[in-house]
């Protein structure tokens, strides 16, 4: 076993099928590389082949009647500057992106990379989760579509099999009176820092009543998770300070963070309450509530 990152091949397939064929032929020892900003930091030892996707044209943001589709190879800088993503509730993607790493990294890092590296602390998945995003996965058998929350299986683990890779993220259209918010806590809010915890929320109102609520959080479990309890508390209610607080506390109750060098589990749990509360207040404010 090599003790050093030294893949022997670099391939640039021309279409989806060829990509899957290469990936499958290396039986798990091939790795897709997009921006490279994650791969070259971790330099995994179990890689024989790097597969670059630049010829697949996965770099796009499309705005349609059914919502928004974003190619997996879209750089983060395009997301943060995207007109299509400047409106409620999509704009939380721009906001989450602006809080992610640095402008220099965002010039090359991609949305697919951010999702597929499946770190518990990544920023875009919670935002995408409250936007009910689905990811499109391509493999030898064709493509499949799954909700983003189901994409993650554990720390650095996804549902992708050896031949599969992500090609697109799909976000549905939302009714008016929908507001969302993304909150991220870093060490004294220093730039580049990954989240101690992050949280996203989306509220869709019918009149003054919450018709639909989504709350997601990151860095509190092996994968980003929804707070189902918070959603239940909010649904069908007219928001007030007390309900927001109860929902935030419920989310904190569902968080199962760990102690690590960046923060203690106890601090993270307390911060989930603060961030979810802020995310809900901001979501409501954004629909004029």
């Amino acid at each position: 076993m090599r003790n050093i990152f030294r893949p022997s091949e670099f391939r640039r397939p021309k279409d989806l099928h060829e990509t899957s064929w290469i990936l499958s032929s290396f039986e798990g020892r091939a790795r897709v590389v997009a921006g490279g900003t994650e791969l070259l930091v971790h330099k995994p030892l179990d890689v024989d082949c790097l597969v670059g996707l630049s010829k697949l044209d996965l770099d796009y943001i499309r705005n349609g009647r059914a919502g928004i589709t974003i190619g997996a190879g879209t750089t983060l800088v395009k997301i943060e500057e995207s007109e299509a993503l400047s409106v409620e509730p999509y704009r939380i993607l721009r906001e989450a992106t602006r809080l992610l790493a640095t402008p220099t990294i965002r010039n090359t890092a991609t949305i697919g990379g951010n999702i597929c590296n499946a770190s518990p602390a990544v920023d875009l998945p919670p935002a995408l989760m409250v936007l009910d995003a689905k990811v499109i996965i391509s493999g030898l058998e064709g493509t499949r579509e799954i909700p983003i929350a189901d994409f993650f299986e554990g720390v650095k683990k996804t549902v992708l099999s050896d031949d599969e890779f992500m090609v697109e993220v799909k976000i549905p259209a939302f009714p008016e009176n929908t507001g969302a918010s993304f909150q991220k806590l870093r060490h004294h809010q220093t730039s580049i820092d990954i989240a101690i915890v992050n949280a996203a929320a989306r509220l869709s109102f019918a009149g003054d009543t919450v018709k639909e609520a989504k709350v997601a959080m990151g860095s509190v479990a092996a994968t980003p998770i929804y707070s189902k309890k918070a959603e239940e508390i909010l649904k069908g209610k007219i928001l007030d300070v007390d309900i927001v607080k109860r929902a935030a506390e419920a989310a904190s109750g569902e968080a199962k963070p760990i102690d690590d060098i960046r923060a203690s589990a106890g601090y993270r749990k307390r911060m989930v309450t603060v961030l979810v509360e802020r995310a809900l207040e901001e979501s409501a404010r954004r629909c004029g509530k």
């Binding site: 730039s191 060098i261 960046r262």
Partner: peptide, 28 residues
């Protein structure tokens, strides 16, 4: 004052990189 400091556990430095050893940046 605010963010730096090596973290050692059983003699092992746990944050030997600029991601976990946080130096302040221009916008901080």
């Amino acid at each position: 004052a605010l963010t730096e400091g090596l973290i050692t556990k059983d003699g092992k430095i746990m944050n030997p990189n600029f991601g976990d050893y946080r130096m302040l940046r221009a916008c901080d």
